[in-house]
């Protein structure tokens, strides 16, 4: 009898254990976010201040939008290293279009077109040219930056049309436009990835490309779509970045954006090789990075040490959420 009870007890504990491990594996990034959030609010009283909170969101919105695109491309089993360079190229051309036409609408449309065209080119190289995404986008990374530098002659270009700065510097009930754009983009990409055929195909292709093709999925077209989408999101980020200071620097803007975006995606629990991960994970991954940056500033950590702290957190985060 005693034995039987013990067995039942064991079974119960193992059930709770599996339930806990399920909770952990599904929501580890949210749990990590909460821990860091609570830790931050204990460590610095200024952290919880509403202005500080909005400040964090404002600072992550650009990287956040880029990271959404990076999530999609990484879910498909690829990677896009060119996001930072394409962002600069889009920014420079946008400013030129803005000054030449005097129309904000023309500038925005130009930005969206240039971004998605660069992405489409990446997609062509990967899908039709069968070049590994790492290599193809590495080439684009070098090329796009170089063209931006050439056009801007190595310096910055500034907008001459009043009103363009309003895009990134206005707010709606205290909330800045970039935050709102980031949130809207998150919702849109979430819907795209989890509620549409395209999203399902991206997961399938990232997990097993051959089986996806044998399921009659137009794998090439999906890949073209994926890279174009990244380009489109990058151009949205580029509009915000350019509008914020009404200028963009061909040499120093967008540097290392690809690394920050990849870091956010990885912290968010998306698998490097594709097929597994969530948009919501990336959202919280971006927030975690933002809080870390903010905390280090509030606590006066030397800017030279911030990279070290960030790097360590990324590795610890990934160690903790290791699955399978």
């Amino acid at each position: 009898m005693a034995n039987l009870q013990l067995k039942e007890y064991n079974q119960q504990t193992s059930n709770t254990k599996t339930r806990l491990s399920w909770l952990w594996s599904e929501y580890s990034v949210i749990i990590a976010f909460l821990i860091i959030f609570i830790a931050a609010s204990i460590m610095s009283p200024r952290f919880l201040d509403i202005n500080n909170q909005l400040n964090i969101l404002m600072q992550v919105s650009i990287i956040g939008i880029v990271a959404l695109g990076m999530t999609v491309v990484m879910l498909s089993g690829g990677i896009d290293l060119s996001v930072g360079s394409v962002l600069v190229l889009v920014g420079v051309i946008t400013v030129l279009a803005l000054n030449a036409s005097g129309s904000i609408l023309v500038a925005i449309l130009t930005a969206l077109f240039v971004g998605s065209a660069a992405g489409f080119l990446n997609g062509l190289m990967v899908a039709k040219g069968r070049i590994a995404s790492f290599i193809a986008t590495l080439g684009m990374m070098a090329g796009a930056r170089s063209i931006a530098l050439y056009i801007a002659e190595g310096g910055s270009v500034s907008g001459e049309v009043s009103g363009f700065t309003a895009i990134a510097n206005s707010d709606l009930w205290l909330i800045d436009y970039p935050i709102i754009i980031f949130l809207i983009m998150t919702v849109l990409v979430y819907v795209l990835m989890h509620k549409t055929r395209f999203g399902r195909y991206v997961y399938a292709l990232g997990s097993n490309e051959k089986a996806a093709l044998l399921s009659a999925i137009r794998v090439d077209r999906v890949k073209l779509g994926v890279y174009s989408l990244v380009g489109l999101l990058v151009s949205v980020a580029a509009i915000i970045e350019t509008s914020r200071l009404n200028s963009i620097s061909s040499s120093s803007s967008g540097v290392q954006y690809e690394l920050d975006a990849i870091a956010a995606v990885i912290i968010g629990g998306t698998r490097m090789t594709g097929g597994r991960g969530k948009i919501i994970g990336t959202f919280f991954g971006v927030l975690i990075l933002g809080i870390l940056n903010n905390m280090m500033n509030l606590m006066n950590v030397s800017p030279h040490l911030q990279g070290f702290v960030k790097g360590s957190i990324i590795i610890v985060a990934v160690l903790f959420q290791k699955r399978e």
Binding site: A204, S207, N208, K210, L214
Partner: peptide, 17 residues
């Protein structure tokens, strides 16, 4: 290798094509 997509759920494998 060719049939299942192991990261997708049972239902999603069924509906994929």
């Amino acid at each position: 290798e060719n049939g299942i997509i192991k990261d997708l759920s049972v239902v999603h494998n069924m509906s994929l094509a």
